[in-house]
């Protein structure tokens, strides 16, 4: 975490642009600009600024936004549930859809269905989110009037951004699942299971899924972790009040406390999600248990 704060601080300071200039408008007197810089502390040297920031962090404080004067930590805490809801909803769509499509494609390998799933997943990966977001909005909001096009609120507002966000995740999952399941289906133990007379449902659920679960969980963990850092484009287009939009606004306005707060939160969340994924491995696959008893 310390390394991240240092890297983030250095990179932000290396960016061209001045937060005060965005703040003061067009005709501010130079002495006012200087006094605002002094109050913000951006006139000091890099080391003093960084030490000051670490001091703030040590007190559990992310500082206040240069623009809104609001407490950054409070804003992050306020927006995080929205981002969590969006990430969770997106995964709720992506996981069943992606895994199911991957399974079907693997069972129908090289057939028409496999080719269709391959094409759809390739499209899902290649189509940029801003385009799919606009298309989904025009179709489901403007034409069919099923969901509101933007805003933050109840489940109705969540459906479109979650769907758009789920598309690339579902596509990745479908492709990974297909490859993994297709490999597993060639394994001798699957033939053994078939020979034992087990039903295909039993084989799929117990023998195939159990062995394919590790790469699937890895992808889920990575996608979920990155969505928890905010989906900038999706949140902006659908006006979803999450961490992605908050971070983006901070970057545009050079609002250093906001950018740093979001980076630190994002890093912590990502590390946490990866840790949970690693713990999940332990339960899902006995071969990677760290403290497995020696036989």
């Amino acid at each position: 975490m310390f390394g991240i704060t240092l890297c983030a601080f250095f990179l932000i300071k290396a960016l061209p642009g001045d937060p005060v200039l965005s703040l003061v408008g067009e005709r501010a007197h130079p002495e006012i600009i200087e006094s605002i810089k002094k109050e913000m502390g951006v006139d000091k040297g890099f080391i003093r600024q960084y030490a000051g920031y670490l001091n703030l962090l040590a007190q559990g404080n992310f500082g206040t936004s240069y623009y809104t004067n609001r407490d950054v930590l409070r804003d992050i805490i306020g927006k995080f549930p929205n981002t969590l809801a969006l990430a969770f909803a997106a995964m709720l769509i992506a996981v069943p859809a992606g895994v199911t499509l991957g399974f079907i494609a693997a069972y129908r390998k090289d057939g028409l269905i496999d080719k269709c799933v391959n094409a759809v997943s390739l499209a899902g990966l290649s189509i940029p989110v801003f385009w799919s977001a606009i298309m989904v909005m025009l179709l489901l909001s403007l034409k069919l009037k099923l969901f509101p096009p933007s805003g933050t609120g109840d489940i109705r507002f969540l459906v479109l951004p979650a769907f758009v966000l789920s598309v690339p995740a579902a596509a990745t999952l479908a492709r990974i699942t297909r490859t993994t399941v297709a490999d597993i289906l060639k394994m001798p133990y699957i033939n053994t299971a078939k020979a034992k007379g087990l039903s295909s449902l039993n084989i799929s659920a117990v023998h195939v899924l159990k062995n394919a679960i590790i790469p699937i969980v890895t992808i889920i963990g990575l996608d979920f972790g990155s969505y928890l850092n905010g989906a900038v484009v999706t949140e902006t287009i659908f006006g979803w009040d999450g961490l992605g939009r908050f971070t983006m606004e901070g970057i545009i306005k050079r609002d250093y406390p906001v950018i740093l707060g979001c980076i630190i939160t994002g890093t912590a969340v990502f590390v946490l999600v990866n840790l949970i994924t690693d713990i999940a491995y332990h339960y899902l696959d006995p071969r990677i248990r760290l403290h497995a008893k020696k036989s």
Binding site: I134, M137, L138, S141, L142, K145, P148, P149, S150, G151, T236, I237, F238, G239, R245
Partner: peptide
């Protein structure tokens, strides 16, 4: 005042009467 950063989203909201 609805805060809508994207122009196209605002146009869609308008066409829907929001």
């Amino acid at each position: 005042y609805k805060i809508i950063p994207e122009d196209l989203t605002a146009v869609t909201e308008f066409e829907l009467g929001n």
